[in-house]
Amino acid sequence: MFTLTEEVLRVQRCYRTLLHVLSRPGTLARLDLPIERKNRLVSVPSPLLLACECLLDEKVTVSGLTERGRLWAEEISRGMRVKLAELEEADFVLSGVEASASELLSLKRGSLLAPEEGATLFVYVEEGIKGDAGLLGFAGPGVKGRLSLRVSAAVLDWASQRGKLCFEYPMGFEAFLFDREGNVLGIPRACEIEVLKPRRG
């Protein structure tokens, strides 16, 4: 009656992980990464590639933030027939973790009439999400009371950059942080992140 291919199953699992982490900010989950990489998109880290395969197609636009992000976006656009767009216009944005607050500020945030048009940001954290650099506190929808997570220095910095932004809710953007091991963290626009124990120096 139906056929289920590897591909279809993989994106379905990936989607459920993304849905899980976005509805529970501060909770880490792990993506089921494919063992071999597609050679046509070599430069894109495999967790990012999987997330793109799950959510991107010709009906949406993509852009890059940071040098590597722009490279990935171009490659995704070529390989998956996704239209490239300016950062301010893009539905999906691929980014390295080093993006600054001023850069994040240019992401599409939607409007009061259509807040869902706010961008979705995929951030790749080379050094890993988990770490001992500090503690992030999460609050807001999806979080029971307050939740804390030990993270790497890169994530700590990223969170403090995000913390400098001030969007009028319901406008804003969603972020997914990925690392090499396939860990993923979801940060919806309404999520409040507090840097509880910043790194010294």
Partner: peptide
Amino acid sequence: KREIRRKILKAVAIPGY
């Protein structure tokens, strides 16, 4: 499915919208 999946994520991010 992709379209519905994208929309569900936005719905989760903007509760009640």
